[in-house]
Design a protein around this nucleic acid. Structure first.
Lengths: 217, 217, 217, 217
DNA sequence: GATGAATGAGCGTTCATTCAT
DNA sequence: TATGAATGAACGCTCATTCAT
């Protein structure tokens, strides 16, 4: 995983100005990115509530009005940030899984766990901001559903191959996902950001949970 | 579980006035309770942010200043509400466990699950308000720790008895707790509030996860 | 008509403080009055749009929040001001009419005209503010209807007595009312605030308009 | 009177594009007309205040900057709209008068009334927007003066011919004009847009008001 | 002529909190 | 204890207007 995490390309944006002559007008994509990154950084530092639109605009180096060109509301940025986070998460984890052989089901689950825990530990602050601190969050969200679908796919493959057994793939996936969060959170509280130990624990627990009963000899 | 849930004794409070001659001055305990119940109801209905101290005071039938006699801040009420919720949760689940024989470990786990899912499903709105909608929530909380300790106790007993095996009791408990939430949430989204099906699924998954390997004959 | 017009009792309010020891808390009625008068003065001077709530609060000597204790919106004050204006107008004109004998129909009409023109000329600025400058004004308003009803009463009495004749009392009243405004406005533009000349013109025109045809001898 | 009223030729403008190949650059006159019509429609629908320059530009199918090529201010459009309205009103009424014989004074007054009421009833919304909803309207306006002059001419002719008598032509004209508005407004409130009944009432009232006293035999 | 991204002063409104009674 | 009028800092959001392309 890259060191920059998911907070954004603000630094790059700041440097850009020096290279090419300063243009007051920027491509929409760049402005949006700058604003989102500024918002993310502030949300993490001061919290969502305490961050004002003025703060965001100032940090992005634009006028307040410019913020409202691209977002219609403070909540809007959070939603965009959430989408960006989820997209990133999915992509990283998918890449980790893809490194394992298609038939290596335990390896794929392990890859998911390591990818997920690693990404999560590396971006907890942003994760919390976009998924928890936002009032009136949804119990059900497209974002979570996408991740669950990803796990379900891995599990179903393993079941088809006869390695795993479980009464309901979705429930199993939910337990894997939320169990992962719980154990990772505990690791954070314990003060470690090394994904190794929690991953090993999770692998062992979930391996037991999913293992197909050994056929009697 | 009583039908009234955990929202409070507002109804009782309302009736009280009739029985005992109306006294502008009420025992502190009663006032606090009225205010908390009023707050809970409003938080659920309109959300925390949208609920003003005025709203709470009005619903509790007191002046705004009175609110500040008992709570120093809006956040204060939420914290109190959270404590009340957790206390209630612990008590109910403990009662469910106590109904089973001390050596019936699967039964005790099952009792925990049924108690927890049932209580949760019956009070989701309040749960969400006090545990999620409150900005700047803590990853770590005394409340959650108490519940985890409760599960750990059940699990350790089972392990000591040789029925269960797992690498780390706390991690196992975390997976049980958060897995329970995840599956219960999914049931809510699916539209059912019948605790039966999710409980059965959880029992099966966790039984597999915790089962001590059968000794080879 | 008193010289103070309808703008309010702000002066009195300002003096009050000196006499009785300064009380931060004032009776609601006084505060409302102070705020309305401050608003009226500012609306006249700078226009409604250009007047901010801050301006109003400052001129009334209270904090901005206090304004919102008594009015929920800027539009609210305008509506209140309109009601106060209309009430005052009706009262003054009614008083003028009451000075004439009940059977002196021309005298009563004349009294209405002189009362109306006088009051209008003495308060045009406020009149304009509350009845014209307020966007989305209503073609139909309770206020105007009340005044029309007053005129209709005078006209009907005269018709019953056989002094006047007209096809429709309401239409006649409308022409009297709006004709009065038109001629008074013209006088203002012409630079005079002496109600005499326009009144005489109006009396002559309306006398002709309403006169019952003399029976042929 | 044409069915399209005075709102503008937007429809024509919309079709134009199809016929002649689309030219980004349009003759100034066309652009101005498109913008005025767009503004008028929006002012009527949402009110002046609520209509933004963006709205107007969007509805006219041009960029915001283009608006500022042709008008320097929002108020500018209103003034232009007012002039266009008044010009139209005068023309229509003048045409109606011209249909009557030069010596038919009652007929000419009647023509004025019918033309005025008809035009007014057919365009009230626009009328209100340009003459009332515009903050800081003028008591005195070139537009109104032109109309008054038109009525004065009719009245003076009749007086010269000995059919009418009145103390002051301008006052009489003002009463006719504002009386017309008052009665027409009342008809609108009453829900009818048939100009017949209000016209008949006005004719009778004004005929009485203006009639020269019959010489005694 | 036409564009539309950028601006930023400005304003209405909210609401937690205080405090004199 | 209880009240509720008064406070005033704070913030989200609007939108007319500019100007580089």
């Amino acid at each position: 995983m890259e060191a920059d995490g998911m907070i954004g390309k603000r630094q790059a944006a700041a440097t850009r100005g020096a290279a090419q002559r300063w243009r007051r007008t920027q491509p929409a994509e760049v402005r949006v990115d700058d604003l989102m990154s500024a918002a993310a950084a502030l949300f993490i530092t001061k919290g969502i509530e305490a961050t004002t639109i003025d703060d965001i605009a100032a940090r992005a180096g634009v006028a307040k009005g410019t913020f409202y060109h691209y977002f219609s509301t403070k909540a809007d940025v959070i939603i965009a940030l959430r989408a960006r986070f989820a997209q990133d998460f999915l992509a990283r984890v998918a890449a980790a899984i893809a490194e394992r052989a298609a038939h290596d089901h335990p390896g794929r689950l392990s890859a998911w766990l390591r990818g997920a825990v690693g990404t999560y530990l590396a971006n907890v602050e942003l994760h919390d901001v976009v998924f928890h601190d936002f009032p009136h969050h949804q119990r059900q969200s497209q974002e979570k559903d996408d991740v669950i679908a990803q796990i379900v796919a891995v599990l179903e493959d393993g079941r088809t191959a006869g390695v795993w057994a479980f009464p309901d793939a979705r429930s199993a996936a939910l337990i894997v996902f939320d169990g992962m969060h719980a154990v990772a959170d505990d690791a954070i509280v314990a003060g470690t950001r090394d994904p190794g130990p929690p991953c090993r624990l999770l692998e062992e627990m979930f391996t037991r949970m999913l293992a197909a009963p050994r056929p009697r000899s």
